[in-house]
Design a protein around this nucleic acid. Structure first.
Lengths: 201, 201
DNA sequence: GACTTTATTCATCACCGTTGAGTCTATTGC
DNA sequence: GCAATAGACTCAACGGTGATGAATAAAGTC
């Protein structure tokens, strides 16, 4: 802890140090389980500085959990193929991202915080509704597009929930290829016979 | 607030009043969002009394959220039928329970708390693993029993997650019969051609 | 009716997130 | 190259949190 008041000499990136400490703490201890004072101590900084830079604990959490990927774009890319390939492509994309030790835990924590606080940081609900469900529904043609998309959404949500958030042991223990094998039919059955909407519009 | 110290005259069921106040607060404000002091105030009681009766906030939460149903038994009953009927029976059971305004919100809160604290109150993980997955797997015969059961589990988990925990609008808005129609195939496909284990053992 | 057990309050603890005031350094304008 | 300003940082304090131990009063037991 620097005992001297006022701005520090040199231009040390204190902000980055705080973010790093926050990340570690939030990932290992959860949101409620980590105190700003603990983060501040790790970063060698006064607590008040965290509020100064990020204005609140929520703000700090959001900043520390910022993702190196745009999930919406990944989904978009996975859907750039014939419907028949969607299940495999979606699943492999999702698993690759969530199994990444740099990303998966961050997403899992974000989901929890987002579900816990009614107006969640990051808005996981909005992601599911807009980025995932909306995109799938938007590409499908026909009366049953909504039902199909909803089915796909729930299949993916179940995988994520069981494997990464609640961490059911027998699901978390399986290899990603085994998961692909198991979940593929759940998704595929909703897309059977589906036709894509005309893209020329 | 009773100002006089010591045991109260008569034998008022203060414990029950506390539980009622706790239930209301926890359901409307979430776990982190409700303070023991608020509950105590609602119940017209000193905070310390909550710790006395339930030893901790977690203990109070667990006591207040105790369920009027044994989910394990319901699952058991749903599975007492030919495999072909499982999807419909499981889904209708699950939806009936979770759509009940007295039960669903309690379960949703419990899931969240259970996922947030590593050793969760009530142990939702254990429920999924033992009561649900274990029971299904136990009744199925054949090499792929484990994969089948896991597939069923994830389908149900996805439904619960999307509809009741994260509350994705387009999923939560649908009628329960519509949900049944959408999710049934996801579950059925994992059970297609499955055979039950010999029960005579 | 004395004694023990149970239910209750009060005072206090350490910790929490946030805020305002004060202090020092870096940057900008001349 | 110096003065003014803006930015980064600490300190002290606030009200709120869950928990605990001591004091007190009623209920239960013999």
């Amino acid at each position: 802890m620097n005992k001297v008041r006022g701005r520090r000499a040199g231009s040390p990136d204190t902000r980055a140090q705080i973010l790093e400490a926050a990340r570690d703490r939030f990932l290992s201890g959860g949101y409620a389980g980590t105190s700003m004072r603990a983060i501040a101590a790790d970063a060698g900084v006064d607590v008040a500085l965290l509020s100064y830079h990020f204005s609140s604990k929520q703000g700090l959490f959001a900043a520390a959990m910022e993702l190196p990927v745009r999930p919406g774009e990944l989904i978009e890319h996975a859907l750039d193929a014939p419907v028949e390939q969607w299940p495999g492509r979606i699943l492999r994309t999702v698993l690759r991202v969530w199994d990444d030790p740099e990303i998966g835990p961050v997403l899992a924590q974000t989901v929890l915080v987002s579900a816990t606080q009614e107006r969640g940081a990051g808005g996981f609900v909005e992601f599911l509704e807009t980025e995932l469900l909306g995109r799938i529904r938007g590409r499908l043609a026909g009366r049953d597009a909504d039902a199909r998309a909803t089915g796909v959404l729930m299949s993916i949500a179940g995988l994520l929930m069981a494997r990464y958030v609640v961490k059911v042991p027998s699901v978390a223990a399986k290899s990603s290829e085994e998961i692909v094998r198991i979940v593929t039919p759940s998704i595929a059955i909703h897309l059977r016979g589906a036709r894509l909407r005309d893209q020329s519009a």
